[in-house]
């Protein structure tokens, strides 16, 4: 039981890493990037090529990929999102969904259907574990991922609240026209924010590749987990993503206890409950669900 709880917390760290970029883009630009999962998988292949084919040390590979994904984010914003943003709220959804379809299949054509893993790049670390009292063993990588999630969320929150760039991003997200009036280059700010979101995807890709193996079509599962964590947690602060990820991980673990194939179903049900609860302003009531207000 104890190990189940500990493992659920560690899994939550992984989901939080996956969800941070998605939540960041959603909260600062009101765009749900449907290519989020596919871009994380792309970053995973990038890390694999740099680390495995070019034999670069893992931290160097991460640094290079973060720079590359930041640039890709700026390009993505300039070429697609900024254009789509002007055409109403549907177009960014349609465009990013189209991009995810293209990326999934391009990666399939380039890297084949085999599942890859980044574990060989970090040697012993991939199977090393900490021993807790009561002979409970937890994988070091899972612990590091949870710590990384907290650090990444903390850094982004610090950036948003304490730096000039963060203030510009917040101003742009709240009211583009007014921000532009105040002399903020909103296009540039939004492009930088997209770049940051994609750069955090490299951390997510590293977590993905170190925990397990992935294939070219893995992006949709990642998008679903990330989205569920974001919706369960709610918007407002990135810390809520961590809370959402914890709920998601526990729901999945519970689902797996109930039925061998109940892992994903548990997570989906937690998402539905979260939607219900939010719909009722925090209160669950069947009468209100059918439009009949409870009598005061």
């Amino acid at each position: 039981m104890t190990s189940l709880i500990i493992n659920a917390f560690l899994l939550a760290g992984y989901y939080a890493v996956l969800a941070t970029g998605l939540a960041f883009m959603y909260s600062v630009m009101n765009i749900i990037n449907l290519a989020h999962g596919a871009l994380i998988v792309l970053a995973g292949y990038g890390l694999y090529v740099l680390g495995n084919d070019l034999n670069l040390p893992f931290p160097v590979a991460i640094a290079i990929m973060m720079a590359a994904m930041f640039l890709l984010g700026v390009v993505l914003h300039r070429a697609v999102l900024a254009r789509a943003y002007g055409g109403g709220e549907l177009l960014p959804l349609l465009a990013t969904f189209g991009i995810s379809i293209v990326l999934d299949n391009l990666m399939f054509q380039t890297f084949g259907a085999d599942n890859l893993s980044l574990a060989p790049l970090v040697g012993d670390l991939s199977w090393a574990s900490f021993e807790l009292p009561g002979s409970i063993f937890v994988g070091k990588i899972s612990v590091y991922i949870l710590v990384t999630a907290i650090v990444v969320i903390g850094l982004i929150e610090l950036l948003l609240r304490r730096t000039a760039l963060g203030h510009r991003i917040q101003a742009t997200s709240q009211d583009r026209a007014t921000a532009a009036l105040l002399g903020i280059d909103t296009g540039r700010t939004a492009a930088i924010a997209t770049g940051i979101a994609l750069a955090t995807g490299v951390v997510a890709a590293a977590a993905l590749g170190l925990r397990s193996a992935w294939g070219p079509y893995g992006g949709s599962a990642i998008l679903l987990f990330a989205f569920e964590a974001v919706v369960i947690g709610g918007t407002g602060s990135l810390w809520r993503v961590l809370a959402g990820a914890i709920v998601l991980a526990f729901a999945q673990s519970l689902g797996a206890l109930v039925h061998p194939q109940g892992f994903l179903i548990g997570g989906h049900l937690a998402f539905l409950v979260a939607v219900f609860v939010r719909l009722r302003g925090g209160r669950i009531s069947l009468a209100r669900l059918f439009g009949k207000e409870a009598r005061a």
């Binding site: 959603y26 749900i32 449907l34 709220e89 679903l224 989205f227 989906h268 998402f271």
Partner: peptide, 12 residues
Amino acid sequence: SGGEFAIGMWVL
């Protein structure tokens, strides 16, 4: 609404 509806339907 928007993206939440889009992916929410996918979850279902």
